[in-house]
Amino acid sequence: MKVRILVTGATGFIGRHVVKTLAATDWAEPIAASRRADAGLRVVDALDASSLGAALADADGLVNCVAGSPETIVANARALRAAIDARSTPVPVVYFSSMAVYGTAEGHVDETAALAGASPYGMAKVEAEQALAGLPTVSLLRPGCVYGGGSPQWSARIAELLRAGRLGDLGAAGDAHSNLVHVNDVVAAALSALRGPDAGGRAYNLAMANAPRWNEYFIAYAMALGATPVKRIGGRQLKIETKLVAPALKIAEIAGRKIGLKGLPPPLPPSLARLWQQDICLDASLAEKTFDLTWTPWREAVQAEAARS
């Protein structure tokens, strides 16, 4: 008999990939859950302990892929904690945290590093991890930048910026390690965590070994996309993007939402430019060993990603 795995946030980017991969296994069947009612979806309010608890009662495991505002993140983690505490039998749970819990740390960072979220998002993830601390069946996954499989943030958005000539080789401004991790590897880690008897009760960094620096990623991706010749983006242009264009696009987006305008070009906020310079290098050897991961080769993945768009 297949085990039933509840996937909250199943309509999100990672949630969709988790559901799809689970459905293709011979050992699990997914229960895709979302707050929205739709075909094939179970309606679950992941911010509400009783709604979550009721759904969890019918499941043998949970992958929590809920995304949202900082408030949503914290409320979801608290509801999850209450639901797990209320359950009489142990159930394996995978909770998606983020490398944002390390804040502005630089250098080699493994799971023992101090949690010091610097952004509202990062601080919410720290709070969420604290809410789930001490639960022996919960695996906390801290992915770096999840790309591939149509990743809106690290594939589609980047492709759009590269095609528009707004992104390219950034020189010193793109020198940091990317901490990229392919969505397939993220899903593989989550599934392995569900099945591993001793995986729970710990946090795991998730970033490919020898991840490229951002410039390498942008140049290879641009070439795969045919967005050539690759642009060299100077400091002046990056400043114009982050200080002038990004706020204007943000205002246009807010205004556009009211009149139903869609398809605006993505902004390049200062936080993104900061990340590309933050030389943090996640050590994911614990995840690699525990979940027996083989990292998807990034150059091939970039080719595949370019081919699908």
């Binding site: 630089e106 020189g171 010193a172 030389d279």
Partner: peptide, 16 residues
């Protein structure tokens, strides 16, 4: 090369 000034280009990497 850009021409790349190795000092400016790699300063941050060396600094940390």
């Amino acid at each position: 090369s850009c021409p790349t000034d190795f000092g400016a280009r790699y300063r941050h990497r060396l600094a940390r």
